[in-house]
Design a protein around this nucleic acid. Structure first.
Lengths: 200, 200
DNA sequence: GTCTATAATTCGATAGAC
DNA sequence: GTCTATCGAATTATAGAC
């Protein structure tokens, strides 16, 4: 791994753990085993390096979500797969944390990739929910865009609760809770029509 | 308002907007129109002042939630009142934001009031949900502690979405979504028994 | 490409006058 | 109680040698 690559990965880790305000060029260089000259040769400044790091992280997160939500199962199963995927809960969300960083939010360049990721994520999830309505998994009156926002919010908020209590328990409770509410949408008398997704 | 009080309020605002890592003693003093001597006379250091500020904020937030959840209505109405209360959405949550701050989370003294607040909030909400189960508003199989975590997570996550998109719309969608899911818990054939709460 | 030297500014605090 | 002076370290670079 060359110096430029190490600098990007170093910045990604530091943005995750300390945010943009809490990440100094010196810390980036130390973690990357690179000197100042190296860093300022590859990147104009801290902002440019952070932008590269944030773009990589948001793309990675979106692709992972897309993968969970595309698996060949029912809508509720795909959403459950997304919500129950293994995560570094106490470390928080790479993207969500940055939305709480004042210098990121005040900087349109740095905010854009975050905005894009959360918007696309909600759109994709809403599509899965619409499919679930078609197959009878969810109530026809359900607002797919609303529930998409709710589901993503639960995940983001679950990280907050876990960090506040320094435990994964509240995270797990929040996820179990929203899955219970979603599954309760399917009345027992109206059976899930698995496989209907694959009709011609 | 004396200097000490102004320093506390100044710190509260800066913690809200910039977090602990992004808040300098100089900034606190400027906002409070107080000198360095004044600040270091009233508080031992930045940490001590921040602790006082955080304790005041978490207590304020808990009392406000307690008030919403205690109003004389059904369980679902009280939860709706809590979720729909007017908030400075784009500014984020005074408490939730601090759980993403590395220096707050690494410091047990500063984390304690946050942990306490989120724990008590979940307990109080769980009690309201249990009451809702008694009155038939919610399914008897519903895990009150799970749903309590879910509801608070939605609120915290809704702030994240709003800030990411720089708009209150995703916030409102997330809240509408969770209220839809909660209200769907009450089957139309099993009418809400309003007022049952007040039985002897 | 990477290194070292330099630098203006800010950070977080201390000391002592008033 | 509040003010000003001072301080060592860290921050965010720039300059120029190699």
């Amino acid at each position: 791994m060359d110096a430029k690559e190490r600098l990007i990965e170093s910045a990604r880790e530091l943005l995750w753990d300390r945010g943009y305000v809490g990440m100094s060029p010196k810390a980036i260089q130390d973690r990357a085993s690179a000197g100042q000259g190296s860093m300022y040769h590859h990147f104009e400044n801290k902002e440019a390096l952070a932008l590269t790091a944030i773009e990589r992280s948001t793309e990675e997160l979106y692709q992972a979500a897309k993968n969970d939500l595309a698996s060949p199962h029912t809508a509720i199963e795909r959403i459950a797969a997304y919500l129950k995927r293994e995560r570094q809960v106490l470390r928080g969300c790479r993207a969500g944390k940055l939305t709480q960083d004042p210098d990121v939010m005040a900087n349109p360049k740095l905010r854009r990739p975050l905005q894009k990721m959360f918007t696309r994520l909600q759109q994709r999830l809403a599509r899965v929910l619409e499919e679930g309505k078609m197959t009878g998994e969810f109530e026809p009156t359900m607002g797919a865009k609303d529930i998409a926002a709710t589901v993503i919010a639960v995940l983001q908020g679950a990280y907050v609760l876990a960090r506040a209590e320094n435990s994964v328990e509240p995270f797990d409770r929040a996820i179990r809770g929203v899955l219970f509410l979603l599954e309760a949408q399917t009345p027992p008398l109206r059976p899930k029509r698995k496989g209907l997704r694959n009709r011609t």
